[in-house]
Write a protein that binds this DNA or RNA. Structure first.
Length: 428
RNA sequence: GCCGUUGUAGCUUAGCUGGUAGAGCACUCGGCUGUUAACCGAGCGGUCAUCGGUUCGAAUCCGAUCAACGGCGCCA
């Protein structure tokens, strides 16, 4: 049994091979039949001639419907007329399963493709995206394992919210209510006291009523937490991470990126240093580019677009005003109204990472929790971490789906993962 | 929470100022020895989202309901 991609490479020219896969397209002209066969690696045309094979098998092949599964044996023949330059001259065929009429045809709408997502996953577009996604996730793991990090996990069921806002999904839990996690950060912070460097890949859930091209209610969250590292060091780590992931994608997924119509130069641009600007400078840049933003505002999508308008490289924004950010960000000891945090803004998709230094001094944390009016009781275990050998530490959270969206040049986040969940759609 | 758009065959759609619903693809049957999401001929397929109203007559006009899609804010 051979893979289609290897056959197309010419490894078996002139030899007889067997492939298995799914019918991609069929065409026939009397006693000739052309059936293209797809497997996970590619698509190849098979040519069947009634005279050169069992007539019953020929008729079965001629009648077979798109997406039927089959095994085909034949001789590999280079031929200019074949898409891909090689084709299989069929000697025998076994139809494993004869498909019913496949509902997806060349005329399709995005809406319909969401209804039949379980079938649309077979398309070249989705297959390419899913391979790219696999590479992104593999590269993230690889990078951190190579750099002395341990992979660990926080709970998905939590008793309280991690950040401000009321965007948690409630779940019945015996006689009480618990919530689906919206971040593993606080738990990773607990883990640094044994592992020092930890990362996790887990879904996060946000009950935001968002209907945008970059929001999901269930998204894949890659988070790290690192002892002994400050805000600037964390930006260094993130920049290297993004660069590593992007290069891996260029190396391993060039064909897929081409199918997706991605401009590779936009990815290559990550070799340049990522600009780092203070919040204030970011506001000025946005204003200069026509955004109506005032000092003290948080940034919306329009502002982020204005910021990255003239660049292909992601941009860091750091030193946000304290009031705009969650309680755990460490205020800059030099400027108490700013926090040692940063966001990483990618062109077109916007924020892909939010991170920074965490408060590690007990009195500062207590003050911040009180200022924000949070439930001190609920955070006791988190506060405890500042009582027993507290250390400076930093971390970040990355929206994996957004990174895939950005690297793949994908217009809407729902095309960046196999089964997207948003406010309205939870099927299939 | 706010703004906007759309529901006609399995899919993509045409249908003007109201007059008995038209096509392409898919599918079925027939033809074709080099097709490139082929071509030629025939066939199958529709409670025009739902409910109500106006009218001699509604896919078309009006109202309500339902559903879906796009975008903003929030965030990753």
């Amino acid at each position: 049994m051979e893979q289609v991609s290897r056959v197309l490479e010419g490894t078996f020219d002139g030899e007889e091979v067997t492939i298995r896969g799914w019918v991609f397209r069929t065409r026939s002209s009397g006693s000739l039949a052309f059936v293209t066969v797809r497997d996970s690696s590619g698509v190849i045309q098979t040519v069947a001639s009634k005279k050169e094979m069992d007539p019953e098998e020929f008729d079965a092949l001629k009648k077979v419907l798109v997406e039927s599964s089959l095994e085909v044996t034949g001789r590999v023949n280079p031929d200019e007329r074949a898409p891909g330059g090689r084709e299989l001259h069929v000697s025998s065929v076994r139809v494993v399963h004869s498909a019913e009429t496949f509902p997806i045809t060349k005329d399709k709408s995005e809406e319909y493709l969401l209804d039949v997502r379980h079938l649309w996953l077979r398309s070249r577009e989705m297959t390419s995206t899913l391979k790219l996604r696999s590479t992104v996730i593999g590269a993230l793991r690889q990078y951190y394992l190579d750099n002395g990090y341990y992979e660990s996990q926080g709970p998905m069921l939590v008793s309280g919210q991690v950040e401000g806002g009321s965007t948690l999904f409630e779940v019945p839990y015996y006689e009480r209510k618990v919530f689906l996690t919206q971040s593993s950060q606080l738990y990773l912070e607990a883990l640094i006291y044994s592992l020092e460097r930890v990362f996790t890949l887990a879904p996060s859930f946000r009950a935001e009523k968002s209907r945008t091209r970059r929001h999901l209610t269930e998204y894949w969250h890659f988070e790290i937490e690192t002892a002994w590292v400050g805000n600037d060091g964390m930006m260094d780590i993130e920049e290297e991470t993004i660069r590593y992931v992007a290069r891996k994608c260029l190396e391993e997924r060039r064909d897929e990126l081409e199918v997706m119509g991605r401009d590779l130069d936009a990815i290559r641009a990550v070799d340049e240093p990522f600009p780092r600007m203070r919040y204030d400078e970011a506001v000025e840049t946005m204003q200069a580019n026509g955004a109506s933003v005032e000092w003290g505002d948080d940034f919306g999508y329009e502002e982020e677009k204005a910021l990255t308008r003239d660049t292909l490289v992601p941009i860091f924004i750091h030193h946000f005003p304290k009031d705009l950010k969650a309680f755990y960000h460490r205020p800059d000891p030099e400027e108490g109204d700013r926090v040692l945090n940063h966001d990483l803004i990618a062109p077109v998709v916007g924020e892909i990472i939010g991170g920074g230094e965490r408060i590690w001094e007990l009195p500062v944390l207590l003050q911040r929790i009180e200022d924000e009016g949070l439930d001190m009781e609920a955070y006791q275990w988190y506060i405890d971490l500042r009582r027993f050998g507290s250390v400076p530490h930093s971390g970040y959270g990355m929206g994996v789906d957004r990174v895939v969206q950005w690297i793949g040049g994908i217009s809407h986040i729902k095309w960046a993962l196999p089964f997207p969940r948003d406010m309205r759609r939870i099927y299939p």
